[in-house]
């Protein structure tokens, strides 16, 4: 009874070797192997599928993020860049305030929002709140035309990275307040890009987990932005408090 098993076992081993050597199918003239061999080959190849499934899922996740952050070209053509920017923000479950108005438009937890913002054609935005949203550098393109944006809040955004910060130069003439606290992907290399925001008055860089030596970095940051009030809480070695 064990003999057929053994041969099956050896066969499995061999076909696994075959797959590993990755040459099995590269010939075009040999006739197709018998059915049972093909089944075995198929089974051994199954082992890769877990791996494939995982990479496929992460790719899908990434594609989803990219898609949600795509450029709202149609809205921009139809209603102008301000409405397109507002629409993008609400779709991302963020909030904003138009120039010269006091009330905010924001999406609720389930992503529902008030369409009344459509009445404010050609009114630029002044404050934008994207806390805990999936905005990334690609989505920033939708806000490119906002020359009067004063406050931008990006607390706890998982997709905000160094490349995102480098792109903030588009608001260099107007931006006064920036909150990038709790963003898990920001590193020191990205903070260097904030040098372009020369009008910055308030900056929150609290609890950035990827910053390796926060004490030095924050001193350097203050040196780089002398007119800016830098808030940095949530670091163990907070030199600012010691001094």
């Amino acid at each position: 009874m064990s003999a057929p098993f053994m041969s099956l076992y050896r066969c499995c081993q061999r076909s696994a070797l075959l797959v590993v050597s990755r040459r099995s199918l590269s010939s075009s003239s040999v006739s197709p192997p018998p059915l049972h061999t093909r089944i075995l080959l198929y089974l051994t190849q199954r082992f890769y599928d877990v791996e494939m499934l995982q990479s496929w899922m992460s790719l899908r996740r990434w594609k989803g993020v990219q898609k949600r952050n795509s450029f709202y070209g149609y809205a921009q053509q139809q209603y102008g860049s301000d409405i397109a920017a507002a629409y993008y923000i609400l779709n991302m479950k963020g909030g904003f305030r138009f120039v010269g108005q006091s009330d905010w438009f924001s999406a609720d937890r389930r992503g529902k929002f008030n369409w009344a913002f459509m009445d404010h054609k050609n009114t630029p935005l002044e404050e934008v709140n994207m806390n805990y949203t999936g905005i990334n550098y690609r989505g920033l393109e939708n806000l490119e035309g906002q020359k009067t944006l004063r406050t931008l809040s990006l607390r706890g955004c998982p997709e905000v990275d160094d490349w995102f910060l480098a792109r903030l130069h588009m608001f260099q003439d107007s931006l006064e307040e920036l909150d990038i606290s709790h963003c898990p992907r920001i590193t020191t290399g990205g903070l260097a890009a904030l040098r372009n925001l020369k009008g910055l008055k308030r900056l929150d860089v609290s609890s950035l987990p990827e910053i390796s030596s926060p004490g030095v970095v924050i001193i350097l940051l203050e040196e780089m932005l002398p007119k800016c009030d830098v808030t940095a809480n949530g670091y163990d070695h907070n030199l600012r408090e010691e001094s």
Binding site: S2, A3, P4, S7, R10, C11, R14, S15, L17, L18, S21, R23, S24, L25, S26, S27, S28, S29, V30, P33, P34, H36, T37
Partner: peptide, 28 residues
């Protein structure tokens, strides 16, 4: 260049081990 050579080798041995049930019993 194609890798026919290697394949043939693998293919032939594979067939042998699967299709010779009786001989195998003797060799058990």
């Amino acid at each position: 260049v194609s890798s026919r050579h290697t394949w043939k080798y693998g293919h032939l041995t594979l067939c042998k081990s699967l299709s010779t049930g009786r001989a195998l019993r003797n060799d058990f």
